[in-house]
């Protein structure tokens, strides 16, 4: 006989190392001679999209297109430490370091623009499409390339230190900052003869803060869901006297494309 059931689970999940552990990301930003901006950051791309979001964050902060950002990453001779690609921390923590580096560089660029434009303050100066202009007077402008040519080297650093507080002796407190809130609902069909479980449909709702790249966020939801299906229904380490007895894909079964349903995904971006 086949029976159906529904389940819902709600979680909150801390970003970063948490619990008082030092959590620091660094990034450099540098204006290149051709007017592009180089971002150096140790954030490792493991498929989560670090390379994409760091470029997006830099471009938006500087008012440039993503084609005007040159990303140097995963090169320990050129990049400052951005911590590990773990704990869901790169987009938030290192992304903030990139944002701060770009804001610092932006101030230096505007200081130079003030001189070249012959205006008396950087208040009201605006960067758009590689040009800096007085907001209400776009025809009076100077390009980032001209600024680069007129200066030895403009560069800035960004350091972001995440708020992490150690819990008290009773395990109470607020060890992480920030948190992601999520809920997941599934409907399954169970074959009561064989025990086989089929997932008929699933819905995921995540409060992610601001989704820098919604496609990548959805990809993380899909991947996380598939891993969860594996843990719940299939996977078992199979230890015997400390050794794994099923150390191959023949015996250690993980989900395939046939085991995963389409997932309805909702991103809540607040604030």
């Amino acid at each position: 006989m086949k029976k159906r059931g529904k389940g819902i689970a709600c979680i909150f999940y801390g970003t970063g190392y948490g619990n008082g552990f030092p959590d620091v990301s660094r990034a450099y930003a540098r204006l290149l001679k051709d007017g592009k901006v180089e971002i150096s950051v140790g954030a490792t791309e493991v498929g989560q999209g670090a390379k994409t979001v760091m470029v997006q964050i830099a471009a938006e902060t500087l008012g440039l297109s993503d084609k005007d950002i040159v990303l140097i990453n995963e090169d320990t001779s050129k990049t400052p430490d951005a911590g590990t690609a773990a704990a869901s921390r790169q987009t938030y923590n290192t992304g903030n370091a990139v944002k701060i580096a770009c804001e610092n560089l932006r101030e230096k660029i505007l200081d130079e623009a003030v001189k070249l434009l012959g205006v008396n303050t950087k208040v009201g100066l605006h960067i758009k499409d590689g040009l800096i202009h007085v907001k209400s007077y776009p025809s009076r402008n100077v390009s980032l390339k001209e600024i680069a040519e007129n200066n030895k080297e403009l560069k800035a650093e960004g350091i972001f230190t995440a708020q992490t507080t150690q819990m008290d002796e009773n395990g109470q407190g607020a060890p992480y900052w920030p948190y992601t809130f999520a809920s997941c609902a599934v409907e399954v069909e169970v074959d009561t003869e064989t025990g086989e479980v089929k997932i008929l449909r699933a819905k995921h709702v995540l409060d992610v803060g601001r989704a820098v790249n919604p496609t990548l966020v959805e990809g993380q939801i899909d991947g996380g869901f598939a891993m969860g299906v594996g843990y719940a229904l299939m996977e078992d380490i199979g230890l015997k006297e400390g050794r794994m007895t099923n150390g191959s894909f023949e015996k250690s079964i993980i989900p395939t494309s046939l085991d995963i349903p389409e997932i309805e995904k909702v991103l809540i971006e607040y604030p």
Binding site: E218, G219, A226
Partner: peptide, 10 residues
């Protein structure tokens, strides 16, 4: 074809 990251849907 096994995939551990994408969850296959995309």
């Amino acid at each position: 074809n096994l995939c551990r990251c994408t969850g296959y849907n995309k």
